[in-house]
């Protein structure tokens, strides 16, 4: 009865296309990152949840990394790309240190980041990058990037799954948007808040985001980079410690520069 059999599938050119499966080289791993610059310090934070869709892959995956004594990087988006990008940038920083006998400035790292990201213009690292640290004249600096290298120096920036939740709050609290100083009072200047206030805002931002965004939670890692000679009492003083909050100082990576970097970690809700 082959006479009445349907023609084989390969005979139909329109069916052949359906058999092809596109390989998708990207994924989205949730989480959120955030950085705020102060007058003589910068705070760079990220949660530690890594997820794919509704599944949590791990409750502890780092998104924030120390690059130099005065620069910290945070990545968000596709974790594999983020991790690999950090690895490559660390390698470039090492080469720079061997060639020049000094660590790269945050300004130069920002430009390097752009070149490296744009170098992959047609197969980008799917990573939103934020750099935080201390610039050459000792002021807090935050640089934020899109996945192909557009960048800008700002006083604060949130990125990732909870960007839409956190950024309006930061606009209000850091940039004082929609706020007017009382008549005769000092005008508001962004980037001049004390460390204790900034820490409070960062922790509030993440607890808020954890409350409403399923891709954010588990833990918070918060790096504080301080200008050389700045007091550390407002961070390591025991009365500043929030419950379950741990502070640890990270040793110097280079020599000479006496900027200090601290890692603050605390738990976030796990549901």
């Amino acid at each position: 009865m082959a006479l009445f059999a349907p023609p084989p599938m390969y005979a139909d050119p329109t069916m052949a296309a359906d058999k092809q499966h596109a390989f998708n080289p990207y994924s989205e791993n949730g989480g959120s990152i955030l950085a705020i610059a102060g007058a003589d310090f910068t705070v760079i934070a990220g949660d530690t949840r890594q997820s794919e869709g509704y599944s949590i892959q791990t409750r502890y995956a780092r998104k924030v990394w120390q690059l130099t004594d005065r620069c910290v990087i945070a990545t968000n988006g596709f974790a594999a790309d983020g991790n690999n990008f950090v690895k490559r940038i660390k390698q470039r920083l090492e080469w720079y240190e061997h060639a020049h006998q000094k660590q790269m400035s945050i300004k130069a790292i920002a430009r390097l980041t752009q070149t490296m990201l744009y170098g992959n213009r047609f197969f980008p690292y799917f990573a939103y990058v934020i750099l935080g640290g201390i610039d050459e004249d000792g002021t807090g600096a935050v640089y934020s990037f899109d996945p192909i290298g557009s960048y800008e120096r700002e006083a604060c920036r949130a990125a990732g799954a909870a960007q839409s939740l956190i950024q309006p709050f930061l606009d209000n609290q850091i940039y004082f948007r929609n706020q007017t100083p009382a008549p005769g009072a000092e005008p508001f200047v962004p980037g001049r808040l004390p460390l204790s206030t900034v820490l409070g805002l960062v922790i509030d931002s993440f607890t808020s985001a954890t409350e409403r965004e399923i891709a954010v939670g588990d833990g918070l890692e918060l790096y504080v980079v301080m200008k050389k000679g700045r007091t550390t009492d407002d961070l390591v003083g025991s009365d500043n410690l929030i419950k379950n909050m741990q502070v640890q100082e990270l040793g110097a990576l280079g020599e000479g520069g006496s900027e200090r970097t601290f890692l603050v970690s605390l738990p976030l809700k796990r549901d």
Partner: peptide
């Protein structure tokens, strides 16, 4: 959600509630 979660607190008096909801909405 983000702005309200960060700005709202329990038992606000009418004047403070006005400020809170206004800042939440505008930002």
């Amino acid at each position: 959600y983000g702005a309200a979660e960060g700005l709202w607190e329990p038992d606000l008096e009418p004047d403070d509630l006005f400020e809170t909801i206004s800042q939440t909405l505008l930002n």
